[in-house]
Simulated assay, not measured.
Amino acid sequence: MGQTKGLDDIQKRLDQGIQDVMTGEKFQEWLRFLSSFHAYSFNNTILIYQQNPQATLVKGFQEWKKHGRFVTKGAKAIKVLAPLIRKKKQEEEKREGKGKEENVLYGFRYVSVFDVSSTDGKELPAPPVQVLEGDGENEKDLLQAWIQKIEVPVRLENTGDANGYYHLLENYIALHKERSTLQQLKTLIHEYAHHLLHAKGAPFEQESNSIREAQAEAVAYVVLHHFGYDTGDYSFGYIAGWSQDLHIMKQIGSDIVVCSHQIIEKLRVHSSKQGATA
Score class of each variant (00 low, 15 high):
S112H: 13
L81V: 12
V223T: 06
E191I: 00
A82Y: 00
V219R: 04
Q3M: 13
V111N: 12
L31G: 02
I173K: 00
Q50H: 10
T159K: 01
L124P: 13
M1S: 11
A216W: 00
A202Q: 10
S271K: 02
Y221G: 11
S210Y: 10
L142D: 14
Q28N: 10
Q62V: 07
R212Q: 08
S235F: 14
Q144G: 15
G237E: 15
R212F: 05
T119L: 02
S117I: 03
K186W: 01
S254F: 10
W242P: 10
N209Q: 08
G253S: 05
P125D: 06
E170C: 12
V269N: 15
F33E: 05
S272F: 08
N44F: 00
S35A: 10
K89L: 06
M1P: 02
Q184N: 10
G253T: 01
R32D: 14
D233L: 05
L168H: 07
G24R: 03
Q50F: 04
A276L: 12
A202I: 00
Q148H: 14
A278L: 14
G2C: 05
Q90M: 02
W64Q: 07
L246E: 15
A145P: 09
Q54Y: 02
A218Y: 01
G121K: 05
L182C: 12
E123A: 05
T45G: 03
G121R: 09
Y106A: 11
F70V: 09
A174L: 02
E217L: 08
K100P: 15
K5Y: 04
S260I: 00
Y192A: 12
P127L: 13
T277L: 12
E63G: 14
E63R: 07
D230H: 06
F204L: 09
S271M: 07
E91R: 08
G60A: 12
A278V: 12
I189L: 02
H198R: 05
K149A: 15
V219N: 05
K94H: 06
A199R: 11
Y49V: 13
S35K: 11
G164M: 11
S35Y: 03
P153W: 02
G160W: 09
Q130I: 10
G253L: 01
Q50T: 11
R86I: 15
H270I: 05
P53S: 09
H195F: 12
A55D: 12
K65S: 10
F204V: 05
R179S: 15
K140V: 06
L143K: 02
A218G: 04
V129I: 01
G121D: 13
I239N: 10
L169I: 11
Y106Q: 03
Q251H: 13
